[in-house]
């Protein structure tokens, strides 16, 4: 894949998990009957002995995976983000996080991306809910390349993790040689007037906004905060110290995910100002994805406007 090519992050997961499973026979996929959408079909065919489908039973999927993990397996539990966070929430808490077992919850259809499915299938609370559980790591890659690299990093790093992928094709941002470390933001652009911190599919919007701001003589630092927890506080504090003006962007409720985490840093630093762009604490509906983003102000234009409002 070349930079600019269009492909969904879920495809990156689906390809890399097969390689990981072939390299390490302890890697398992636990599906809950939406494997086709979540791109585990190749894994199912290639590695049937490392594959389980528990049916439409997400609660069992999570607890079952915890049992697998006690024997040294590294299960990836796969479903949509809304079910992989809320439906199995308490199993994640008691059997995966409290036990600190090596289970990865790997979900597609994060944020508003299951747009036509409507609010029932859109995940706007997932990262926020899971961020509050001790021992949990929360990751959302911005493109196909980082999806592959972060899935690999997750497999190689012990501990409970939530990996959030999305349905729609997004442009490839990274070269195949890019390196990623869980908990370490990627600085995609340097600038001293405003910082834009984004996660997941909205990183592309942040980059577009930074280019537009540049045309207007405003230089923006852009961070890909692929790990929402543990937050790269060093990178955020550098934004506070160097710039002090921050716009956060995410396809998630503005409550309790990236925007909130950055605000926590800013409040503790006692300086700086933040504008949070994200879902406006309201449910979605069936509509084209770009329309849902626009209704919540998750657009290049609004990032530009919010950034300019801080200058």
């Amino acid at each position: 894949m070349a930079i600019g090519d269009m492909i969904a992050t879920r495809d990156g997961f689906g390809e890399e998990i097969v390689k990981l499973g072939q390299e390490d026979r302890n890697i398992y996929v636990v599906d809950a009957d939406i494997g086709k959408s979540c791109k585990t079909g190749k894994f199912m065919k290639a590695l049937p002995e490392q594959y389980v489908n528990v049916g439409i039973a997400e609660q069992n999927a999570a607890a079952f995976a915890a049992g697998l993990a006690t024997t040294g397996k590294v299960p990836f539990v796969v479903t949509y983000a809304v079910f992989g966070s809320l439906r199995m929430c308490e199993m994640i808490r008691q059997e995966i996080c409290y036990t600190n077992l090596n289970v990865k919850i790997a979900c597609s259809h994060g944020g508003l991306t299951p747009a036509n499915d409507g609010a029932s299938h859109q995940a706007i609370e997932d990262m926020g809910v899971l961020r509050t559980i001790p021992n949990m790591t929360v990751i959302q890659p911005a493109d196909y390349v980082s999806a592959k690299k972060l899935v690999r990093a997750a497999a190689e790093t012990y501990g409970p993790m939530f990996l959030r992928f999305t349905r729609d094709a997004v442009p490839v941002i990274y070269d195949e040689s890019a390196e990623f470390t869980i908990g370490k933001a990627v600085k995609l652009r340097e600038g001293g007037d405003v910082a834009i911190i984004a996660v997941g599919d909205t990183v592309r919007l942040a980059l577009e906004a930074a280019a537009a701001l540049h045309e207007q003589g405003v230089e923006a630092r852009v961070l890909d905060m692929h790990t929402v927890k543990p937050l790269d506080t060093e990178a955020v504090n550098a934004c506070i110290a160097d710039i002090g003006k921050i716009v956060t962007v995410e396809d998630h409720n503005i409550i309790n995910a990236l925007g909130s985490a950055v605000c926590e840093c800013v409040a503790e630093a006692g300086r700086g100002i933040v504008r949070r762009i994200g879902v406006q604490d309201q449910f979605g509906e069936s509509a084209p994805y770009e329309r849902l983003l626009a209704k919540n102000g998750i657009t290049t234009e609004n990032i530009v406007a919010q950034a300019r409002s801080l200058l």
Binding site: Q59, N60, G67, Q94, T99
Partner: peptide, 29 residues
Amino acid sequence: SMVKCPGIDISTGSLGQGAACAVGMALAG
């Protein structure tokens, strides 16, 4: 709590979940 007490094969308390964890252990075997 399995992280605190030796011999506990998995933590329980919130009901129903242990029965499902045990299925994962059995399948791995």
